[in-house]
Amino acid sequence: MPGTLHVLHGYIGAGKTTLARRLERELPGIRFSADEWMVSLYGVDPPESEYRAAQERVRGLMERCWRRCLELGQHVILDGGAWKRSERDHLRAAAAEVGAEFRLYALSLPDEEALARVLARNEREPGHLHVAENTYRMLRSQFEPLGEDEVVEVVPPALTTAAST
């Protein structure tokens, strides 16, 4: 019996990793974090000129692994933002290809609160992928909201704070 693909949609600092870790424990499931893989392979602040190619390599490797986990009946939690509709559609199709269920979680916070979380994380947890304030603001335009036809589970902000885990 194929598993379930759990996809988190939210911008930087919305609490995706906190929720992903919670799901990993409670389901239980296998969590895949592109940021963690990036840090392990390329360091906390990879060069901008190489970032996109490195990220694509990491996502490709992860997808081969998580697809197999779904085939084996596992819960798979993708700890990423699923920022673009095309990415979410790809993930839905990938889950369907192996007969897995697909669950989409919507996380959001006001930008200033999310940015404050990111900057605090940069200081508190130096082993995480570093996100500078200008990077946070620059990338915002690449974040696509969910479509009205996308079925989601809305996650209250109280469940995405580190204290709630």
Rank of each mutant, 00 (worst) to 15 (best):
residue 66 W to V: 06
residue 101 E to W: 12
residue 47 P to W: 00
residue 6 H to C: 02
residue 8 L to D: 08
residue 56 E to F: 09
residue 137 R to D: 02
residue 120 A to C: 12
residue 98 V to S: 02
residue 161 T to E: 15
residue 95 A to F: 10
residue 58 V to T: 03
residue 78 L to I: 14
residue 23 L to C: 09
residue 72 L to D: 15
residue 101 E to N: 15
residue 50 E to N: 05
residue 68 R to S: 12
residue 9 H to Y: 04
residue 24 E to Y: 04
residue 45 D to G: 10
residue 148 E to I: 08
residue 22 R to V: 04
residue 43 G to F: 03
residue 159 L to Y: 11
residue 21 R to N: 09
residue 90 H to F: 09
residue 127 G to A: 09
residue 21 R to E: 09
residue 144 E to T: 02
residue 113 E to H: 06
residue 119 L to F: 05
residue 75 H to I: 12
residue 134 N to Q: 15
residue 36 E to V: 01
residue 95 A to T: 13
residue 143 F to E: 05
residue 76 V to H: 04
residue 96 A to C: 02
residue 25 R to N: 03
residue 93 A to P: 01
residue 96 A to K: 05
residue 55 Q to L: 11
residue 50 E to K: 08
residue 148 E to R: 08
residue 97 E to F: 00
residue 22 R to L: 12
residue 1 M to C: 04
residue 26 E to K: 06
residue 99 G to K: 07
residue 31 R to K: 14
residue 13 G to H: 00
residue 138 M to K: 04
residue 37 W to L: 10
residue 57 R to V: 09
residue 47 P to F: 00
residue 15 G to C: 15
residue 49 S to T: 09
residue 65 C to M: 14
residue 45 D to M: 14
residue 144 E to I: 02
residue 27 L to M: 11
residue 28 P to F: 01
residue 142 Q to M: 13
residue 130 H to T: 15
residue 97 E to M: 07
residue 123 E to K: 03
residue 44 V to H: 11
residue 3 G to I: 14
residue 91 L to E: 06
residue 111 D to V: 03
residue 82 A to V: 00
residue 53 A to K: 12
residue 14 A to W: 01
residue 43 G to T: 12
residue 110 P to C: 08
residue 2 P to Q: 14
residue 66 W to T: 10
residue 32 F to H: 01
residue 65 C to K: 12
residue 161 T to K: 10
residue 17 T to N: 02
residue 80 G to T: 09
residue 77 I to W: 05
residue 27 L to I: 07
residue 122 N to H: 02
residue 20 A to F: 01
residue 142 Q to C: 08
residue 32 F to I: 03
residue 157 P to G: 08
residue 37 W to T: 10
residue 150 E to S: 07
residue 68 R to K: 14
residue 88 R to N: 07
residue 43 G to L: 11
residue 96 A to F: 00
residue 136 Y to L: 04
residue 87 E to A: 07
residue 135 T to V: 15
residue 56 E to A: 15
residue 65 C to S: 12
residue 123 E to H: 01
residue 26 E to R: 11
residue 1 M to A: 08
residue 83 W to R: 06
residue 61 L to V: 08
residue 134 N to R: 13
residue 54 A to N: 14
residue 115 L to A: 13
residue 3 G to Q: 06
residue 21 R to T: 11
residue 27 L to N: 03
residue 68 R to N: 07
residue 24 E to C: 05
residue 26 E to P: 05
residue 92 R to N: 02
residue 87 E to D: 11
residue 92 R to G: 01
residue 28 P to H: 01
residue 5 L to V: 08
residue 71 E to R: 15
residue 15 G to N: 12
residue 150 E to D: 12
residue 165 T to V: 11
residue 104 L to F: 07
residue 163 A to D: 14
residue 54 A to Y: 10
residue 3 G to C: 14
residue 152 V to M: 10
residue 120 A to F: 03
residue 160 T to M: 09
residue 98 V to N: 03
residue 72 L to P: 00
residue 136 Y to P: 00
residue 90 H to L: 13
residue 59 R to M: 09
residue 34 A to N: 06
residue 75 H to L: 10
residue 6 H to G: 00
residue 95 A to M: 11
residue 93 A to V: 05
residue 165 T to H: 07
residue 64 R to E: 15
residue 38 M to E: 05
residue 83 W to V: 04
residue 72 L to V: 13
residue 164 S to D: 14
residue 74 Q to R: 15
residue 85 R to G: 02
residue 108 S to H: 11
